[in-house]
Deep mutational scan, measured.
Amino acid sequence: YIGSKISLISKAEIRYEGILYTIDTENSTVALAKVRSFGTEDRPTDRPIPPRDEVFEYIIFRGSDIKDLTVCE
């Protein structure tokens, strides 16, 4: 799965898409590269977040912050 395009939804209901870079089982983290944030879209939340235009080089997510993770390709 390393190198695959991943769609990830955080506990804050924010969806991110990026390339799976590393999975650290010891620290329970997932790192994505070339990440875009799509905001909360239409998911119900107390704090709606708009999508962002910039592409983040890397984002490291803690396993406890991840609600859903899907391989896109």
Rank of each mutant, 00 (worst) to 15 (best):
F38I: 00
T22L: 09
S4V: 05
G39D: 03
G18Q: 02
L8A: 00
R43G: 09
V30D: 03
D53M: 02
T70I: 07
G18L: 05
S37R: 07
E41W: 03
V30Y: 08
V71T: 14
P44Y: 10
A12R: 13
F61G: 04
L32Y: 00
P48K: 09
D46R: 09
P48G: 06
D65F: 02
D65I: 01
S28K: 02
L20T: 06
L69Q: 03
G18K: 04
L69E: 03
I66C: 01
L8F: 00
P51Q: 09
D68T: 11
K67P: 01
R36S: 05
S7I: 14
T40M: 00
V35H: 03
Y21T: 14
G39W: 01
I19V: 10
E13I: 12
T29H: 13
K5P: 11
G39K: 01
D53T: 14
E73L: 07
S4E: 08
A33P: 00
T25E: 14
R62K: 06
I59F: 03
T29I: 04
A31N: 06
Y21L: 14
F61M: 08
L8V: 12
V55M: 12
L20Q: 02
S4I: 03
Y58F: 09
S10T: 13
E54Q: 08
D68K: 14
R47L: 11
T29F: 05
A12V: 11
T40Q: 01
E26V: 09
L8T: 01
V30A: 04
R47S: 13
Y16F: 12
G18I: 01
D65N: 10
T29E: 14
F61P: 01
K5M: 11
I14R: 11
K5T: 08
A12W: 11
Y1N: 04
K67T: 05
S37Q: 11
D65E: 12
T22C: 05
S4H: 09
L32M: 12
S37H: 04
V35K: 00
R43M: 00
Y16W: 07
Y58V: 12
I49Q: 14
I6Y: 11
C72F: 14
K5H: 12
E57D: 12
K34A: 08
S28R: 05
V55I: 11
E41Y: 06
L32A: 04
V71L: 11
E54C: 05
E54V: 13
R62S: 14
T45R: 03
K67M: 04
R62C: 11
D53S: 10
I49V: 12
E73H: 13
N27V: 03
I9C: 01
V30C: 04
P48F: 10
I6E: 01
I9D: 05
I49P: 00
Y16E: 00
L20A: 10
G39A: 00
G3C: 04
T25N: 15
D68S: 09
D42L: 06
E41A: 00
P48L: 11
E26G: 12
K34T: 11
T70P: 03
L20G: 06
I19L: 09
C72V: 12
L20K: 01
T22D: 13
Y16V: 03
T45S: 12
E26T: 15
D46P: 10
I14G: 02
I66E: 04
G39V: 03
I19D: 06
A33L: 07
N27A: 12
I49N: 05
E17L: 03
P44M: 15
E73A: 11
T45H: 10
S28A: 14
I14K: 05
G63A: 10
E57H: 08
P51A: 15
G63Y: 06
K34P: 05
P44D: 11
R62G: 08
I60H: 13
D65A: 07
R43N: 11
P51F: 07
E54T: 11
E73I: 08
I49H: 06
V55F: 08
D24T: 05
I2R: 04
E73S: 10
R15S: 00
S28E: 14
K5R: 12
I19Y: 05
A33M: 11
I59H: 15
Y58M: 09
L32H: 00
G63R: 13
V71K: 09
E17G: 01
I59C: 13
C72S: 07
P50R: 09
S64W: 04
I23C: 14
R52P: 06
A12I: 15
L69G: 03
L20R: 05
I59R: 11
D42N: 07
I2M: 11
S37V: 10
G39P: 01
A33T: 14
T25H: 12
T70Q: 13
I19T: 11
I60E: 15
F38K: 08
R43E: 02
T29Q: 14
I9T: 07
G3V: 01
I19N: 09
I23E: 11
I23H: 15
T29M: 08
A12D: 15
T25L: 07
S4Y: 12
D68I: 07
E17Y: 02
